[in-house]
Each structure stands twice: as structure tokens, then as C-alpha cells.
């Protein structure tokens, strides 16, 4: 059984212009100890997917449909109080902006300790020790003194380490990292990724790594889900996906990257054309209007996800399955 199994997740928003189908039937799973990448252009629904798992959607979101099974338990069926026990305890989360994600008026020590205190009834001295050890683990030098400092006294990289500490101090089995390195400069980026990898090895944490950066995908993830317009359109082991992408959208993303890894320039470049309006009903392939190879058939019939090679699925009429011996 997978640690996390998301089945046919749908999350819609009520907006003035109609219902925005931000996530429209996404399924994926995360195994214990693995790192799953979710990539895709801005607005394709990556953050909405992760906030759906945490059940921390904005007020105008309708209740998510589908199933989100964490160790077989459907998070969508839990009460809000039960869900609070999951957040920070079974699933930790870190965000893009380490500057604004920490509370400016609380000391970093208090913010790390809070996660412990929320989930464990242990003496406050023990809470303190746990927090201190976690800060040391994430590589905060002089951690005891740093605990009494405020976020504005720390650098961006240090702040992201604090975020990691407060997300992982209760040793959750799953960490959702929504663009954890996007706001940091390249050398710090590499350090943070390495830190995540170290903690993963030590604690056996599974990670969902949401990113724009194919360099990060190549370097740090086992399997990759590609999203487009609220749908999963391709999934494969990361090495396979990068070497032999089957969906024209993924091919476009990769072609737009000059060179993977290293210099940190592996950002998604523009693919010409417009992302479809997710408030309008869609017929045919969501990517058809931007796809150079699209046929009338593509425009009329939505492609289903099909197995194209072992462990490799894609939603494209044009991608022929590999002939298996």
C-alpha cells in the first residue's frame, strides 16, 4: 500500500466568472521514502492539489471530491479536529516564501516548539529539547541562541531551514514542499535540497516536491507527475520522463530548457499559446490548442491516461505505446 494515494481528486472554486475547475480528476500515489515531483506551468493546479491534501483551501473552494488516502484513511472523510491532528503531525508542509511564511512577532524557537506542543503532551522542557535538536538537525549554527531570535534576524536560507524544522519536528511521514527553493539563490537552493535529502534518509520521510525547475526535478526526485490545466497528463520515473517524454506538452517543457541541472537555469520556458480557461467546459484534449501535432480527433476527444511503457503513463492520442517484447 502506498503512503499516500490520491484518487480522482477534484477541487473547484466558485468565482465571479463561474466555477473554476482548478483540479479536475487527478490521481497519483506516493510510496514510503520516495520523492515525487509535481511539475507544470503556473496555474496548472499544483498548489491547489497540495492544499487539497492538507484541506487548507481558501473559503471560496467547494469541498474536494475524490479520495485522499493517507495510510488507507480518507482525509476527505475526517472531521476538522481529526484533520488538525494530521497537519504538522502526519503531513508537514513548507512553502515558497520563507520570508513571509514565518510569523514576524514570534521567536523562531517558539514557532518550532509550537508544532511539538500542538501534537504531543510532553513537559515543556522536553518540547524545548525536541525543538533544539531539530534546529541542530536542519543545520542552524548556534541553535540555542537562534531560538530566541525573530525571523527578520535570519537570512532567507536560514528561514527556510526553520520552516523545514517546524514542518518536520514531529517526524511526519509525508512532507509537501511547494516550491521550497524558488525564492532562494542557487547555492542556497542546493543546500536546502541536500538537507531535505538527508532528513529523508534519516527519518524515512516521503516528499512531494512541487517545482517549476526541471533541474531540481532531475536532481532530487524519483518519480514525476506532469500537470496541465488541472489534470495529470503524464507520469513516469523521473529519469525515464526526462529521457523519453511521451506527451507533447512535456516534450515542449523539456525542449525549452537549455541544459538540465548545474547552473540552476532549468526553469520552465514558455510554450507558445494560451492555457485553456478552466471555467469553460472542455471538449477534446486540453492541450490541443497549443499542440503542433494536434488533429481534429484530438480536438474532439479527450485522451485518457494510458500506459505507454512500464511505469510510464501519458494522456495523448499521438503517443504510441512501446511495443513490448
Amino acid at each position: 500500500m502506498s503512503l499516500l494515494d490520491v484518487r480522482n481528486l477534484q477541487t473547484h472554486f466558485r468565482t465571479r466568472g463561474g466555477v473554476n475547475r482548478a483540479v479536475e480528476g487527478v490521481s497519483f500515489h506516493v510510496d514510503a521514502g520516495e520523492t515525487l515531483a509535481i511539475v507544470g506551468e503556473s496555474g496548472c493546479g499544483k498548489s491547489v492539489t497540495s492544499m487539497s491534501i492538507m484541506r487548507l483551501l481558501p473559503e471560496n473552494a467547494a469541498r474536494s471530491a475524490g479520495e485522499i488516502l493517507l495510510n488507507g484513511r480518507n482525509l476527505l472523510d475526517l472531521s476538522e479536529a481529526q484533520m488538525r491532528d494530521v497537519r504538522g503531525n502526519e503531513i508537514g508542509m513548507i512553502f515558497q516564501e520563507p520570508m513571509t511564511s514565518l510569523n514576524p512577532v514570534l521567536t523562531v524557537g517558539a514557532q518550532v516548539k509550537e508544532t511539538v506542543a500542538l501534537h504531543q503532551s510532553i513537559p515543556s522542557a522536553d518540547v524545548h529539547d525536541r525543538a533544539l535538536r531539530m534546529l541542530e538537525l536542519v543545520g542552524i549554527p548556534d541553535a540555542a541562541r537562534r531560538m530566541t531570535e525573530y525571523p527578520h534576524q535570519l537570512s532567507g536560507g536560514m528561514r527556510q531551514r526553520i520552516m523545514i524544522a517546524l514542518a518536520l519536528v514531529c517526524q511526519p511521514k509525508l512532507l509537501i514542499a511547494d516550491e521550497p527553493t524558488t525564492a532562494l539563490d542557487v547555492t542556497i537552493q542546493a543546500q536546502i535540497l541536500e538537507l531535505l535529502r538527508d532528513i529523508q534518509r534519516e527519518q524515512g520521510t516521503s516528499i512531494i516536491l512541487i517545482t517549476h525547475d526541471l533541474g531540481v526535478v532531475a536532481e532530487a526526485t524519483d518519480r514525476t507527475v506532469v500537470m496541465y490545466a488541472g489534470r495529470k497528463i503524464e507520469e513516469a520515473p523521473t529519469a525515464t520522463l526526462l529521457a523519453a517524454p511521451r506527451h507533447p506538452y512535456t516534450q515542449g517543457l523539456l525542449a525549452a530548457v537549455p541544459r538540465l541541472g548545474g547552473d540552476g537555469s532549468g526553469r520552465l520556458a514558455e510554450i507558445p499559446g494560451q492555457v485553456p480557461d478552466m471555467r469553460k467546459p472542455m471538449t477534446g484534449c486540453a492541450f490541443a490548442n497549443r499542440c503542433a501535432q494536434a488533429t481534429d480527433f484530438c480536438r474532439a476527444h479527450a485522451p485518457a491516461l494510458e500506459r505507454k511503457a512500464p511505469g510510464h503513463i501519458a494522456a495523448c492520442h499521438l503517443a504510441e505505446p512501446e511495443i513490448l517484447a
Partner: peptide, 14 residues
């Protein structure tokens, strides 16, 4: 609406 409020919620705060 601030990010740090989202962080607090993601830790399981009521």
C-alpha cells in the same frame, strides 16, 4: 490572509 497564518494552520493549530 498572510502566509504565516497558513503556516500556523499547516502545523495543526486550531
Amino acid at each position: 490572509q498572510q502566509d504565516y497564518i497558513r503556516t500556523a494552520k499547516s502545523k495543526g493549530a486550531n
